[in-house]
Simulated assay, not measured.
Amino acid sequence: MVTLAEVARHAGVSASTVSYVLSGKRTISSQTRERVERSIRELGYHPNAGARALASSRSNIIALMMPLRTDMYVPVMMEIAIAVATTARERHHDVLLLTGQEGPEAVRRVVGSGLADAMILMDVELEDERLPLVRESPRPAVLIGLPTDATALTCVDLDFAATGRLCIEHLADLGHRDVAVIGEAAAVYERHTGFAERTLDGVRERAGELGVRLLHRPCEGSYESVAGTLARIVDERPDTTGLIVQNEAAIGPLLGLLRQQGRAVPEDMSVVAICPEQVATQQSVAVTSVAIPAQEMGRRAVELIMAKVERGGAGGAALARLPRTAAETSVKLLPPRLTIRASSGPAPSRSPATAH
């Protein structure tokens, strides 16, 4: 294993100079820095994480809290996590992935251990139990999500309320007056998960303004669950001509069921989804959709957290000394973009109930 002393000899500098280049604690001339960095690359030197942390009071690790739940669409969460890890590596940081459903205890563990310089939290609920600890923590934090009260927090997310409004506006513009939302699993709403609740709020608000009758039904996403949900919608609102789907796993089964029932898409039933691009485009009918900008959310979260770490010094301690009322509040909501594809069209002159 290559040592710091060997790097120093190779670069023709002192060991302390190599240490300062790694830690950034002192200003080093650009020529010397380049020579040291070239030696590090050529020798394949990897600084010991423990020694690096002792020397700089920083671990160069970001904790990513991403609870994995069976009722959530894991591919989107993993895409965000990969974007976080990739962007962090570009900034010479590693990522500590915490996937347990520990709530506040996970925050206490990260803060108490000193393993990470900062935290990024996913799966944010409207009244998230982790947030009081996050606000008090000496470690800077960024949320990928938006709670009800974002005071003294830094958040980045898709604007899900605007997403809901955009979906209902598209269907209303096409003449649809009875629309149903096939949503996430019931447990997602029971936890008051932010993205699901905010989407529904946006849909309901705009539907009321546009005079669209709306029905919302949670769905587990399995074929059997989608079949049952669709049957309930048709039974309760037989005049439904438009569907908004916020459940990636339900899209394929839904299109298959509509086809089996002789309901043509979009001639009899229009479908709009909130999902990744690849999910929308790889269906039997290309689906009109609002894409989830997973990579952009992950990248922006790291950029925000690095700005906090670099501005606040070791562990962001300077930020932590601010009183809550003076602490930074920053909310960045990414605007939704709807892509029109083959699954949405003008409302039929006859309702599906009459046509079938």
Results as ranks from 00 to 15, higher is better:
99 T>V: 01
144 I>D: 04
111 V>L: 04
270 S>I: 08
121 L>N: 02
292 I>L: 09
49 A>H: 05
309 V>E: 00
295 Q>S: 08
307 A>G: 10
264 A>Y: 08
205 E>K: 14
160 F>T: 14
253 P>S: 09
2 V>W: 00
45 Y>H: 11
94 D>N: 06
269 M>D: 08
329 T>F: 08
271 V>G: 02
339 T>F: 06
225 S>R: 12
175 G>C: 04
143 L>A: 07
67 P>R: 03
85 A>E: 04
118 A>M: 00
312 G>S: 01
18 V>F: 03
148 T>S: 10
214 L>K: 09
271 V>E: 00
15 A>I: 09
146 L>G: 14
343 S>T: 03
57 S>T: 15
324 R>D: 12
319 L>E: 12
286 A>N: 06
122 M>Y: 10
33 R>L: 14
268 D>S: 08
301 A>D: 03
208 G>C: 02
185 A>K: 05
44 G>E: 00
200 L>K: 05
317 A>F: 11
5 A>G: 13
205 E>F: 15
127 E>V: 06
136 E>A: 15
313 G>Y: 03
338 L>E: 03
35 R>N: 03
214 L>R: 06
5 A>E: 05
225 S>G: 14
190 E>T: 09
87 T>E: 00
17 T>P: 07
267 E>K: 12
69 R>S: 07
240 T>Q: 13
329 T>M: 06
267 E>G: 07
237 R>K: 08
154 T>I: 15
86 T>M: 10
218 P>K: 08
115 L>P: 15
127 E>F: 07
97 L>R: 09
264 A>E: 13
269 M>L: 11
173 D>W: 07
199 T>D: 06
159 D>M: 13
327 A>I: 06
47 P>L: 00
183 G>R: 06
23 S>K: 06
18 V>N: 04
319 L>R: 15
40 I>P: 00
118 A>Y: 02
205 E>V: 10
169 E>G: 12
190 E>K: 07
